[in-house]
């Protein structure tokens, strides 16, 4: 399924996720639960900022897989896997294990769109003599 379908399933599955966005390897927004593109871009930007801030915690470069920040007003989750990133916001006191499981399931459910196969035209071999 594509990223948009995966997010639809995520929001149906998880009552805790308020907004979510899926980013490609280059940081571009693949899909979002926000109808407003500016809000989707803002969440994507925050997710990338969180990843950048978390990457500076260690001096040696380590591949980051998850960042979660729980605050009074809500929580922000960022998961990375296979080049893709998913970021989501929830209300206060989320069941973080459950949210992470749902986000990971969503991320794993996204498949690359298959490239269009080249059609081979089959020509009938003309038999007989010409």
């Amino acid at each position: 399924m594509d990223a948009a379908q995966a997010l639809v399933e995520l929001t149906e599955l998880s009552s805790q996720v308020e907004a979510a966005v899926v980013l490609g390897a280059d940081g571009s927004v693949l899909a979002s639960t926000h109808e407003d593109p500016s809000k989707a871009a803002a969440l994507a930007s925050s997710a990338l900022d969180l990843v950048a801030a978390a990457s500076t915690l260690y001096t040696q470069p380590l591949e980051l897989t998850r960042v979660e920040v729980e605050l009074e007003d809500g929580a922000v989750f960022v998961l990375r896997d296979g080049g893709r990133t998913i970021a989501a916001t929830t209300g206060p006191d989320p069941t973080s294990g459950l949210v992470v499981y749902d986000l990971r399931t969503c991320l794993h459910g996204i498949t690359e769109p298959e490239p269009e196969k080249k059609r081979r035209t089959v020509r009938k071999a003309k038999g007989g003599d010409e």
């Binding site: 591949e63 980051l64 897989t65």
Partner: peptide, 17 residues
């Protein structure tokens, strides 16, 4: 008292902070 605030970061090698 009050809501619990925290942040956690996990890495591919299994470590987390």
């Amino acid at each position: 008292p009050g809501p619990r605030e925290r942040a956690s970061v996990s890495y591919a090698d299994g470590s987390s902070v």
